[in-house]
Design a protein around this nucleic acid. Sequence first.
DNA 1: TGTACATCAGTGAACGCGCGTTCACTGATGTAC
DNA 2: TGTACATCAGTGAACGCGCGTTCACTGATGTAC
Lengths: 232, 232
Amino acid sequence: MNGCKVTSVIPSSSDPNDPSCIVVRPRNPRGEGGKLRGDILAAATEILETTGSLDSVTLRAVARRVGISAPSIYAHFPDRETMLVAVIDDAFAELIDTLNEAIAPVSDPVERLRVGCRAYLRFAQQRPQPYRVMFMRGGGPDTDTADLGGPDLGAEAFAILVDSIKDCADSGRSSSVDPFADATAVWVAMHGYSILHTGLPGFPWPPADDVFDRIVLRLAGVPADLDTPVES
Amino acid sequence: MNGCKVTSVIPSSSDPNDPSCIVVRPRNPRGEGGKLRGDILAAATEILETTGSLDSVTLRAVARRVGISAPSIYAHFPDRETMLVAVIDDAFAELIDTLNEAIAPVSDPVERLRVGCRAYLRFAQQRPQPYRVMFMRGGGPDTDTADLGGPDLGAEAFAILVDSIKDCADSGRSSSVDPFADATAVWVAMHGYSILHTGLPGFPWPPADDVFDRIVLRLAGVPADLDTPVES
DNA sequence: TGTACATCAGTGAACGCGCGTTCACTGATGTAC
DNA sequence: TGTACATCAGTGAACGCGCGTTCACTGATGTAC
């Protein structure tokens, strides 16, 4: 009853290292070989999320999860490094989409800051491992992963935050005289919260909404009496 | 001229994977076999600092660096995992010593907070890779390194920060009504700064001292006019 | 004083493993004539 | 309409590598008699 159907298209074992469950994936029809690229990236992301380690995202583990042989990946990525870069770039793109979707319908500057920051914190909390890897490329001088991912995409996300604080200052709701520096402070605090929350889940962390009220507003120079839009 | 003396006690190659430089280490005299334990931990820490990755701290790499054979490590650590835990515990103990030494000679509460936070930021900046690993145990559900290191030691360091902010509040220099929550905010910000500084060195980071003035004092509830001791 | 012996601080070869990557190949499917 | 062929989407075996760990061992050194 616990056996593995070899006709399943979806991997039936959640352990990417479990070789007992062989997945047979129907080959893509002609002209649709490119679909495999998406499947590979999805599988790589899932392995990252499951194991929490980029080192676990090996070509063989990805291939097992997709249900193909490892060399098939070379039809879509020249090497493992490029595949990992694509995973991280995807995550960055998703973060930026999330942020833009969150702030798009909001016009009040402080409210925009609030929904933007909350969307950021939520992304980090819901996808902690991709988030972790996005902003920490190994960090070592000679690590393979030292320059993975797109700094440009990170800069785009940061620019959204700077603009948000600038709008607050321009409308008189924030006392910030240096939106870039204050955005840096806000980012640093949100990142620290997100990363430590993931790394030390046993600590009595305040909920993300408290983080916004206690930390972000103070660092963005928004006093408590100006943190809600004026009803009129 | 570029050859490797095989009589050197100190590894002459800085590349832990370079097998061309064989180090001959004189065997410890009787009764001093325990010295090797310290050498192993020092080598492991150096590899971590050089490569920026705990995965690079392999038994073989450590053995190469010390100038012993890999199985010799088993006389001092039952397995690789235990060795890595010892590396992290050592780093924690060093951080706590650094903090205590920094604040010991200072009595003014805000000054204590200042020197303590600066010592923390300096430790993170000078030893970025051990710092990174200390507070981020893999983070994944099934990572080997998921529960490395001493949470007790981390709690001790955090308690120093809470006490510091409490002293500021008790003496009327801080408006904090919840030193634990505010210490959390300060820690989160300092961690975010330290980690991002390491992971994204290309960003125009403010110097650590500005971080204290702009971020820590604000989050600790110390207003600008109370941030220096009263001269008398 | 000499010698047998126990102990200590290690070594060297070997094991099975998973990895990235290369290479020659296969077999279904669409297309040109 | 039939068939030869090109193309596509992969496969399977093999390579050399570094790894953690086990095992039987070695050779210097201190100690008991």
